[in-house]
Amino acid sequence: MRSATECMHRALLSIWLAVLFFLLPSEAYRDVSDGTLKALPRPGKDFDIHDGAILSPILIPRVPGTPGSTKVLNHFTDFFRTSLPKWNVEFQNSTYVTPVSDGKEVPFVNFIAYRDPPNAAKGDVGRLTLVAHYDSKYEPKGFIGAIDSAAPCAMIMHAMRSIDDALTRKWESMAPDDDFLDDHIGIQVLFLDGEEAFKYWTDSDSLYGARSLAQHWDSEVNPGMSVYKTPLSSISLFVLLDLLGSKDPIIHSFYSTTHWAYQKLANVERRLRELKVFKSSGKTWFPDSSKNERQLSGGSGNLGDDHVPFLKRGVEILHVIDYSPDRPSGFPTVWHEMQGVKDDGEHLDTDTVEDWSLLIAGFAAEWMELEGFMPGSKTEMKRNKTEL
Rank of each mutant, 00 (worst) to 15 (best):
E6R: 13
E6L: 13
E6G: 00
L17T: 04
L17I: 14
E27K: 11
R30A: 11
V32A: 06
L40D: 04
P41S: 08
I49A: 04
A53N: 07
P61K: 05
R62M: 07
S69A: 15
T70D: 15
K71T: 14
K71R: 15
V72Q: 13
F76A: 01
D78W: 05
D78A: 14
V89L: 07
V97P: 00
V100F: 04
F108Y: 12
P117T: 03
P118L: 05
T129C: 14
S136M: 08
P140F: 10
I144S: 05
A146P: 08
M157K: 01
H158P: 02
D164K: 03
D164T: 03
L167G: 07
E172P: 00
D183M: 14
V189W: 09
F191C: 06
F198Y: 15
Y200H: 12
S206D: 05
D218L: 01
E220M: 13
P223L: 04
T230S: 13
G245S: 06
K247G: 00
H259F: 09
A261L: 10
N267Y: 11
E269D: 13
E274S: 06
E274L: 12
K276E: 15
F278P: 00
P287A: 07
E293M: 03
L296W: 03
S297Q: 13
G301Q: 08
L303H: 09
G304Y: 03
K312C: 01
I321N: 02
I321D: 08
D326Q: 13
R327Y: 09
G330R: 09
T333M: 10
V334Q: 12
H336W: 02
H336E: 10
M338P: 00
G340P: 07
V341I: 14
D351Q: 14
D355W: 01
L358A: 06
A365R: 07
M374L: 11
K378G: 00
T379C: 02
N384Y: 08
K385C: 08
T386D: 12
